[in-house]
């Protein structure tokens, strides 16, 4: 089994380094992990369960834009100033995860250029993957007549 992010993108040495500062956490279904606009001071790697990313829309239930499962990085706003969440996140099942303190990881990145580059490439890769997937979903390919109007 593989995962896009964590195991394949980071070398064993860097992964071990992150694991040393990870906290093993568990959340029941329905836990709000973060809210849009709040400080992005933590992030998670899902070990089991799923997390839904959502956007609050007045008068409606929060709209789920994507779900993240095993091996996925939850949150990347902690990596880029101003370190504020762009979406909300809620567990949709019992979730086991590694939790990381964002400030600590950023500090490690500054102190060790090699580790910093590895983390940058990992987070950048995750963002790129999500962007690619989102762009394809934007096409609304499964709609009648595929992507958009008949010409």
């Amino acid at each position: 089994m593989t995962s896009t992010a964590w195991d394949s993108a980071l070398g064993a040495e860097h992964r071990a380094r992150l694991t040393r500062i990870a906290r093993e956490v568990s959340f029941p279904a329905g836990t709000r992990l973060f809210e849009e606009g709040r400080r992005a001071d933590r992030f998670w790697i899902v070990r089991a369960g799923t997390v839904a990313l959502d956007i609050h829309v007045p008068g409606r239930r929060a709209a789920v834009v994507e779900t993240l499962g095993r091996g996925e990085l939850v949150g990347w706003s902690w990596y880029f100033p101003p370190y504020e969440w762009h979406l909300g996140a809620e567990t949709t099942s019992t979730v086991q995860a590694y939790e990381f303190d964002a400030a600590t990881v950023r500090l490690l990145c500054e102190e060790d250029a090699g580790f910093g580059r590895a983390v940058a490439s990992w987070v950048g890769g995750v963002v790129a993957d999500r962007l690619r997937a989102t762009r394809i979903r934007l096409l609304d390919l499964y709609a009648p007549y595929g992507s958009g109007d008949l010409t």
């Binding site: 593989t2 995962s3 799923t50 994507e66 779900t67 993240l68 499962g69 095993r70 996925e72 997937a133």
Partner: peptide, 15 residues
């Protein structure tokens, strides 16, 4: 809907 939301490739990690 209580299931997954996203592109089908996002299900690969759990396969």
């Amino acid at each position: 809907w209580r299931g997954r939301v996203g592109l089908v490739t996002e299900l690969l990690n759990e396969a």
